[in-house]
Nucleic acid binder design. Structure first.
Lengths: 238, 238
DNA sequence: CGATGCGTTGATAACTTTCAAATTTAGTGG
DNA sequence: CCACTAAATTTGAAAGTTATCAACGCATCG
């Protein structure tokens, strides 16, 4: 559906120093655990950097899942193409988020860069070996899995609701994750949002418009959204 | 929504012998891993038995998650009540299935017996202690989590589809799990199915009727469903 | 036998998708 | 920097799907 893989050989290297230009890294996935430093630290220390231009594939469904990834900059979507041709997005990953966590040998979803993206990648085998010596790494992987599970379960609650509720819930989720206060810059397109929420692009667009008319949000540009009335959004979100 | 907890004191005891009357236990959740015996075995060996009459609560949302459960006989639903009063079912658990797995200290869902049900329960703390000595237990818990995650992700794929696709997918899933060949006896009501699939009871009923008209299934009684044409169901399920 | 709960069926309303077109935005080359 | 083209987003009208409200059938149980 999109262009092909893009790990340019010159883009992968081992950073001599623990990454310097890593963004604030509000890891949605790890920030709650107190000991959650070492996995993150390990990835910064021994992870390889790779850069992917916008809309290029990071890994494909059914490819061997040899690496764990952390977003350094940019953003990533995971997805699956359904038999009827529609695309279902599994999740969005922002700077600091970890993705590519698998339990089988192969990826169950494909991953693409939404914008020009830099990731840190670390071999699963390396990580497993480290986990053998440092128990906290294993615990963090376990915790990471648990949080991923919680996130997916929350998503189910979203998907059984109305279009308004899904969109409102999505906006509140993103507002929490991008940490721009009430003004959020969405990295993804309307189509991405639609495929994430199981709606059509038209319905997403109309719903956003109606939320703007209801004064719950403001749309300075199509990618920027200002939450004007969180109470209303929360009420809609139920 | 339903009656209250029902752990009758006389119903909990420590079996003197490794459970005898445990049914075939086609554990959907564990049957793929080769080493997946020891967790199961451990639960059989040191788990306490509890019996819950139909429609009674096993644990509630926000209660401390101190135990891990395995269904011995009967079946269980986990669920959450949404703010608008609707009930979303998180999953159905059949004999051999393990439920109650949590990562936080509290349950995120409530659990109820669908029919008169017997479960084995084991303290999380005990299990964690055992995992410290027997690494295979830890690995199994990890694998169990991974499979739970895969199941929930599959559910997302189901929830974004049409009513026909959801119902067809549900029937195929249940047919795999109850292992009655093409004739399956559903333990749950239409309302349970509806709340699982994010549909109304009327839509579920109509969809089943239309599948019967299309000769894809047969409905001898409302709880018994015969799959007549799996190809058609698979095609619908896409 | 009547009450009760569960499931089915029917009619209508509400919501979402589909198809089509207009509008805005972004990217490119002059 | 502007003009032009392509892509993304928004808007409109009609069709399709699902929910809602209401009634009916059927079985179980006192």
């Amino acid at each position: 559906m999109q262009t092909q893989t893009a790990v340019r050989s010159d883009a992968i290297h081992r950073p001599a120093m623990p990454m310097r230009n890593v963004p604030p890294a509000r890891s949605h996935a790890l920030d709650s655990a107190t000991e959650a430093e070492s996995l993150d630290h390990t990835m910064n220390l021994i992870g390889a950097v790779a850069a992917y231009p916008r809309n290029t594939e990071i890994f494909g469904e059914n490819e061997p899942a040899d690496y764990l990834y952390k977003v350094v900059s940019g953003s990533v979507r995971t997805y699956k193409i359904l038999n009827d041709g529609r695309r279902q997005i599994g999740g969005f990953y922002l700077p600091g988020d970890i993705f590519g966590l698998e339990f089988a040998d192969e990826h169950t979803l494909s991953a693409e860069a939404i914008a020009d993206t830099k990731v840190l990648m670390i071999k699963r085998r390396t990580l497993n070996a480290l986990a053998g010596r440092d128990a906290s790494i294993g615990r963090q992987l376990f915790a990471l899995t648990g949080r991923e599970l919680a996130r997916v379960q929350d998503r189910i609650l979203l998907l059984v609701q109305s279009a308004q509720e899904r969109v409102a819930g999505f906006l509140l989720e993103m507002a929490e994750r991008v940490s721009g206060g009430n003004s959020i810059e969405l990295p993804m397109s309307r189509q991405d949002i639609a495929d994430y929420l199981g709606l059509t692009i038209e319905t997403v667009s109309r719903t956003l418009t109606s939320l703007e008319c209801a004064a719950a949000i403001q749309l300075p540009t199509s990618r920027r959204i200002v939450l004007r009335d969180r109470t209303a959004l929360n009420r809609i979100n139920a």
